[in-house]
Simulated scan of single mutants.
Amino acid sequence: MAVNTWNTYTWKPALAKAGVIPPRAEGAKQWQWEAAPRDGFHVLRHTYASVMLEAGESVVTLARWLGHSSPAVTLGYYAHFMPEAGSRGRTVMDGLLGRRGRPGGG
């Protein structure tokens, strides 16, 4: 089934029934929804990717899961969801340098 078909005839009716988006306007064709594109099924994919990156999942792994041609594509869409990028590396280096700087060795 094509994603647009599923989005129009299954996903958006389910959202409307749940009260997430407004119901189809009276007299509208079955494929006519006032819901914005952000209400489409693709938002679930975007949410999943965002949550995975915020949880620290590897960009390389996520790119593979999403079917992107490279991690650069994934970063182009989702880098803003990685506010802690680099903090783990800094923490490790601080720990290593802190141990080495202590009197008595390490």
Rank of each mutant, 00 (worst) to 15 (best):
E54A: 14
A55R: 11
R100T: 06
A79V: 11
P71L: 07
A28E: 12
A25S: 08
G104S: 14
A2F: 07
T91M: 10
T91D: 15
Y78D: 06
A85I: 13
G56N: 04
A35Y: 06
R100Y: 15
K17M: 07
L97E: 13
T47D: 14
V43Q: 13
W33L: 05
G67M: 02
G101Y: 04
R90W: 08
A18S: 12
A79D: 14
L66I: 00
R99H: 13
V20Y: 08
A25I: 01
A72C: 01
T74R: 02
T5V: 09
A79Y: 11
G27C: 06
S58N: 05
N7Q: 05
V3H: 08
S50F: 14
L53W: 09
M1Y: 13
K12N: 04
A18Y: 08
K12H: 07
M52D: 03
I21F: 05
P13M: 08
M82I: 09
R38D: 15
A79L: 13
N4I: 09
K29F: 01
E57K: 00
K17Y: 04
W33P: 03
V20P: 02
M82C: 11
L44M: 13
L66M: 13
A14S: 06
P22N: 01
V3I: 15
P23S: 09
E26S: 09
A55P: 02
A28W: 04
L44I: 15
S50T: 15
R24K: 10
R38V: 11
G40Q: 08
T8N: 11
P23Y: 03
K29C: 00
G86W: 14
M82P: 00
L15Y: 02
V20K: 10
P23L: 08
I21Y: 03
F41Q: 05
H46M: 13
H42R: 12
G101E: 13
V59T: 11
G40V: 08
W6S: 01
S70T: 10
L53Y: 07
G67D: 02
G19D: 12
V92K: 14
Y9A: 00
M82Q: 11
Y77E: 02
S58F: 06
L15D: 04
G95P: 01
A85L: 14
T74W: 07
V43W: 15
T8K: 12
A49I: 12
A85F: 14
A55L: 15
S50C: 13
S69Y: 01
A72V: 12
T8Q: 13
V43K: 05
G40P: 12
R64L: 03
G19V: 08
V92F: 10
T61A: 08
S58R: 02
L44H: 07
E84H: 13
V92T: 11
G105W: 06
A25M: 06
W33S: 03
R102C: 07
L75M: 15
P71K: 00
A2I: 01
F81D: 06
V20C: 02
G67L: 04
A79T: 02
A25Y: 00
V92S: 10
W6K: 00
T8V: 11
A49M: 06
N4G: 09
Y48C: 15
T5I: 08
